[in-house]
């Protein structure tokens, strides 16, 4: 009771003085950083390693106890201890042997309902819906452009981030830390590569991930409108609108527009003015909130 009183006082003191040490208190932040990330070893190997280490330490602890107390080892329970040690070690080795599921395995195992949504096209959002969220201050929109760097440099939606599919498992840890009202939209030229990326992110348990329907090609088809005013102002050369390439077939995930220069997000279509467009779309985004987590 005195102890709890002391604890309370300690917590009280900390609460009211923490701002003086906040620089140190917030230093060396590494986020969700596990032994697997640190040692670059598979999870199962670490689990088995810790179990075996524990068995040695338990044995050592008993040796020390007996040495300090001058007692003889109590052999009466040795049988049970060995059984316990053997069973937990075997379990740990089984865990190491099975291994942890990859993102795609996780996608198939954990999220059967997501595959259904994908097939029903419930996760492919139309360009106007994306634009409405870009313009929406209450929702943070993170756009992940998974095309090759060359295509990305030619043209990309403003604020979209270029990432390769291989980077996604690592990146997903960052994405999961973002606030609950964050919307993730993956995009490629059409949908094929974006769908692969979507499966990985869903498999990594990132919530609120959607695919840009029809990809960048569809975006350009929607927003690549020649602005007469700019053309007259003489900026039309720099911002010459990309032209559709007649030969590129649809659905091959290649860019079907030709760009005069690799101007990235400098084209008007990279940043359409939301006020100039009507938002006509079938709403599909359903933002999911998070359950509070943490410990003490």
């Amino acid at each position: 009771m005195f102890f709890v009183g002391g604890l309370s006082v300690g917590i009280f003191i900390f609460s009211n003085t923490v701002d003086r040490i906040s620089d140190f208190w917030n230093s060396s932040y590494m986020g969700r950083y596990t032994l697997m990330d640190w040692l670059h070893l598979p999870t199962g190997v670490i689990v088995a390693g810790i179990v075996i280490l524990a068995m040695f330490l338990f044995w050592g602890a008993e040796v020390v106890e007996n040495a300090v107390n001058g007692t003889k080892p109590d052999k009466s329970k040795t049988k049970y201890k060995l059984i316990g040690a053997a069973s937990i070690s075997v379990l740990a080795l089984i865990v190491a042997f099975i291994g942890q599921p990859t993102p795609l395995e996780r996608y198939q195992k954990f999220f059967p309902d997501k595959a259904e949504q994908l097939a029903n096209r419930e996760v492919q959002i139309e360009p106007p819906e994306l634009l409405s969220y870009i313009a929406n201050d209450h929702v943070r929109t993170v756009m992940l452009d998974v095309r090759d760097e060359a295509d990305y440099n030619l043209f990309h939606i403003k604020d979209a981030k270029n990432v390769s599919i291989d980077e996604l498992p690592q990146l997903s840890k960052e994405l999961m830390k973002m606030p609950a009202n964050t919307l993730f939209v993956v995009m490629s030229n059409d949908e094929a590569r974006a769908t692969e990326a979507w499966k990985i992110l869903v498999g990594e348990s990132v919530d609120n991930v959607y695919i840009l329907e029809g990809g960048i090609n569809n975006w350009l088809a929607t927003y690549n409108i020649v602005n007469e005013e700019e053309r007259l102002k003489g900026t039309a050369i720099a911002f010459a609108p990309p032209e559709p390439i007649a030969t590129a077939a649809t659905g091959t995930d290649t860019l079907r527009y030709e760009f005069p220069a690799a101007l990235g997000d400098q084209y008007p279509a990279a940043e359409p003015n939301p006020e100039e467009y009507e938002f006509e779309f079938t709403p599909k985004v359903k933002l999911k909130t998070k359950q509070p987590a943490g410990g003490g």
Partner: peptide, 14 residues
């Protein structure tokens, strides 16, 4: 116990 509690409470939040 009280003193140790203060230290532990402080350390735990730290």
């Amino acid at each position: 116990a009280f003193l140790g509690g203060i230290i532990m409470g402080y350390g735990a939040r730290f």
